[in-house]
Design a protein around this nucleic acid. Structure first.
Lengths: 196, 196
DNA sequence: GTCTATAGCCTGATAGAC
DNA sequence: GTCTATCAGGCTATAGAC
């Protein structure tokens, strides 16, 4: 740690939305320097090169993002109730932090082994395990790994596809609201999983 | 059209995998020229600038991609059978053409209005409508637009998340096989939608 | 239709003053 | 810790010969 870590943190916080919007190769050191109102050279006092700055920005963007998700899945209540709570929380996380969501999408496309492992360790390992256990409880005859991936995709893709949806038939403004999305998914999953 | 459109088409076919792997700003005109074994200057005989080359590559990568999907959804059989056939076809499309899938993911992040509309017109308008009609038939009480988005995300995310899955608990090699993914999704949706 | 050469700008990164 | 100045190289795009 430095004597004044403020600048370092400011650099990270200003570069996160830039990288989310335009990706690693779409954002130059000059772009970041401009956003922080310092000279490009000053960035190299805080980070050895562009890659290290980017990696530090990812670490910060991803840190502890999923704590509430894990807690929600492991809280009290019936399995179905916990599933619904998870869907609602995860949907709201995606809606409330579009930078996080877009960085995730970009890392799935461009992340190397090191960064993907960071993503798992920092964000997804715990909630993934928790949801897998919940899935096993709800549908013992289904593969919990596949089921957890399905649940995540079900939520994430509604946001991922948002830019396309405006051109697709049947689109309505309320389809952008996280509550509407969560309710739709919860109903779908409830139908699939409730005891019959 | 030119007297010899071969070079133009070669340029597009070689640039598609490059753009899929590294994105618009990650691929230079020099990269493309190298892949086609011509000089960078020669590219400008076939396309006025980099943007136009990229747009033409997208048009080619997306052309008629979903014809078989639409036909599958509108073929004969019970609604549930057509749903299962759609899931299987769409899963195989994603598995067989990773360039198309990654370009789609990139366009969802970076596409401007013009390119997103192209994507809808060239690829998704027809199958989306067909699947929406099928969804309305299977679940009249659900919003067909939301349901179609859900179905697409359910399939797509299994491939999107593949680079991350290797680090997630419960992963098995067979989870990469399109047949396994399709069967999992089909069972999930059948449970949710079959008359009860 | 393709080449070589190059203009003009942007890139990541460094040197050295303060 | 930040600055100005700068380097070496990559970038898109063009000029003009063949």
């Amino acid at each position: 740690m430095q004597a004044s870590p403020d600048t370092r943190i400011t650099i990270l916080d200003r570069s996160i939305p830039l990288y989310a919007a335009k990706g690693y190769s779409g954002v130059s050191m000059r772009d970041i320097a401009r956003a922080v109102s310092i000279s490009p050279a000053a960035l190299y006092h805080h980070f050895p090169n562009k890659q290290a700055l980017y990696l530090a920005a990812m670490e910060r963007a991803f840190a502890d993002k999923a704590l509430t998700i894990t807690a929600t899945v492991r809280s009290e209540g019936t399995a179905l109730q916990r599933l619904e709570n998870f869907i609602e929380r995860f949907t709201r996380l995606m809606a409330d932090d579009p930078d996080f969501r877009m960085l995730l999408q970009r890392e799935l496309l461009d992340g190397d082994q090191q960064r993907l492992r960071l993503l798992v360790d920092r964000v997804f390992a715990e909630p993934f395990t928790a949801v897998s256990e919940l899935a096993l409880e709800l549908a013992p005859d289904c593969d919990p790994h596949l089921m957890t991936i399905s649940l995540a995709g079900l939520v994430l893709f509604h946001f991922e596809a948002a830019p396309l949806r405006q051109f697709l038939p049947g689109m309505r403004a309320e389809h952008d609201q996280p509550e509407v999305i969560a309710r739709h998914i919860a109903r779908l999953m409830t139908r699939a999983l409730e005891s019959r």
